[in-house]
Design a protein around this nucleic acid. Structure first.
Length: 116
DNA sequence: CCCTTGACTTCGG
DNA sequence: CCCGAAGCCAAGG
């Protein structure tokens, strides 16, 4: 397992229920602000990690861009609504309100290069 | 080793 | 405001 993937998972698994975040936010949280796409790629590989709440990760618009990658077509939306997140037309309502910033919540800093 | 693709993001027209 | 292009990183062919 690449360290990059574990970085992503380490953040995603810490996302509280009813909260969501964006790929870019995670990317910054792990010290890779330009690897937002790679974060999504890591999520694709997270299928081997059932403990990874990938449904809580959306793009910065709060749009369920990755719902197509789930089993069903509405599974991702169903999971989110089950946690109290209202979703309409693949768009999270009150996204800013449900948004969970790992950098802020975890006390991280985007300027800090994650190097352990 | 080079090219293509992708669950993204941002800038420009 | 909507559409298109570029930048970015990693993996697969």
């Amino acid at each position: 397992m690449s360290d990059f993937f574990e970085r992503v998972y380490a953040v995603v698994v810490q996302i509280p229920e009813g909260r969501v975040t964006s790929y870019g936010a995670i990317a910054r949280a792990i010290g890779a602000p330009g690897s937002a796409r790679t974060v999504g790629y890591a999520m694709n590989a997270s299928h081997n990690n059932p403990e990874i709440p990938a449904h809580r990760v959306v793009n910065r618009n709060g749009l369920l861009t990755g719902k197509h990658h789930f089993e069903g077509t509405r599974l991702m939306q169903q999971l989110l609504e089950n946690e109290g997140v209202k979703v309409v037309d693949d768009q999270i309502q009150n996204f800013s309100q449900h948004f969970w910033d790992p950098i802020s919540e975890l006390g991280l800093d985007e300027t800090l290069n994650t190097k352990e």
